[in-house]
């Protein structure tokens, strides 16, 4: 493990979702805080420290709070109480095609998405060609995205996200991009990034997948951390439940 400061810190994080009975209750909630609203506790006093260069697997059943955790790391969701500190650029391989504009060409979308991810012109120009190469879109790169197949969109999305030189990479294993050849290419790219000291957060149901990539794993159950440590032991606890 690294000796440097942690790159991701969760301090006593709680996340509660309000479950509004109907749209009437939601409308009233705009003006008046009712105590009757049902709540769902998605994360319950979660504290984690993740250091630079670590690759950490998040395991747990559906509804364990994995997605909520990821959303907080990517800066989409916010804790109800507690602190989440994330240092460095996060590339999330979760919603690859989010932010694309259908009417713009693939190339224009590289810029659009680049801006959305917080890059500036020169930074995007620098990575433009490697994105186009990686996505294998050929002449389609100057066609509007609405003409793309879903595979092409995902490839472009993946290529953009992975090439933005992230410090933290968030991967949901449920994600499958393109054909087997392209999937291998993605896997290799991810491994390449890991060797370059990029921090990886990997969510998976499959034990082999986690073992392949991670040394450390966090086992979540009903919003609480059951185990945090060596990946083999974590998987043991996970299957023993």
């Amino acid at each position: 493990m690294s000796v440097s400061e942690p790159i991701i810190v969760f301090e006593n994080v709680y996340k509660t979702y309000n479950l509004y009975k109907d749209s009437r209750e939601q409308f009233i909630a705009l003006f008046h805080k009712s105590k009757k609203i049902k709540k769902h506790q998605a994360l319950n006093n979660v504290s984690i420290k993740i250091y630079e260069g670590e690759s950490v697997g998040i395991i747990g059943n559906n509804g364990a709070g994995k997605s909520t955790l990821l959303k907080m790391i990517t800066g989409v969701a916010f804790p109800t109480s507690g602190n989440v500190i994330v240092k460095g650029r996060v590339a999330a391989l979760l919603e690859l095609t989010a932010g694309f504009s259908e009417e713009m060409t693939g190339r224009e979308n590289i810029y659009l998405k680049g801006y959305l991810l917080g890059l500036n012109d020169s930074q995007i120009k620098e990575i433009e060609s490697s994105i186009i190469d990686f996505a294998e879109l050929g002449d389609y790169i100057d066609q509007p995205v609405r003409t793309y197949s879903s595979g092409m969109r995902l490839r472009l999305g993946f290529a953009i996200n992975i090439n933005t030189k992230p410090q933290i990479l968030v991967i949901d294993e449920a994600l499958a991009v393109g054909d087997a050849t392209f999937q291998n290419k993605c896997k290799n790219k991810i491994k390449e990034l890991i060797s370059q000291n990029v921090t990886v957060i990997f969510v998976s149901h499959s034990k082999n997948g986690v073992k392949e990539i991670c040394k450390r794993a966090i086992y979540l159950k009903k919003g609480e951390i059951i185990f945090d440590g060596d990946v083999d032991e974590a998987l043991k606890v996970y299957s023993a439940k």
């Binding site: 989409v76 919603e95 989010a98 932010g99 959305l116 991810l117």
Partner: peptide
């Protein structure tokens, strides 16, 4: 909503 739900924005 995609900007709200799917990325830090």
């Amino acid at each position: 909503s995609q900007y709200v739900k799917k990325m830090a924005f």
